[in-house]
Amino acid sequence: MLVIRDLHKTYRQAAEPTLRGLSLEFPDHCIAGLLGPNGAGKTTTISIICGLVRADSGSVQVLGLDSRTHPMLIKKKIGVVPQSIALYPTLSARENLEYIGRLYRIPRSSLHDKIDRYLHAFGLDKNAHKAIRHYSGGMRRRANIIASLLHDPELLILDEPTAGVDVQSRNMILDFLRDYHRQGHSVLYTSHLLEEAQQLCEEVAIIDHGALVVQGNPAALMQEHDCRSLEQVFLHVTGWGVRD
């Protein structure tokens, strides 16, 4: 589902490059985790995959499509859940979803059906008309995910989807991701919660300082590094030093 080759990126006025020849590959129809400490380059990598940021060099293939030659087609096939709640806080969840659905050119009748279905699936149907700003952190995260699902993306990319949510909301989100994967979709997600990644992901890539450190199945990586958890593998390969 994703092939990245020798990706380089240095932001303007930045002292150091963010990505230094990152290369990795995730197979089709899997739940993949892109992991790394703060400043490793996860969000920049996702931004390049989505077409929000231009890479200085290197190539990205998403679902078999080159990101430089087919950026619009890629946008149609992927759904991205940004780390921030990318919704209008003064509008209700339904109003936000209606607007986003129309921008995706989803026909009105099927859009309303989808909105109703997802609001129900994520337990937001009773608060559909409430302004997002009055939602709890978990409710906002769930609404944020629905907004990325309306156009039925083949690949769902999530940046820290469970950050700052309660256990119930987290379980609901993770259950949904498993279901979504079972329906034949691919999922790529980033998280600092390595126990969560260990449970959810079939394949993980740990990056640091803008380059790949290790990649593989979580169980295989634990065995390879003689660790009892993915977190131990993570600390083993990225070090114990605190990152800014």
Partner: peptide, 18 residues
């Protein structure tokens, strides 16, 4: 700041229509 711009930019189609 709130991120809704990112959402709009992620949607396929010309941003100029928005």
């Amino acid at each position: 700041e709130e991120g809704s711009l990112v959402r709009l930019q992620l949607i396929p189609g010309s941003y100029y229509s928005i």
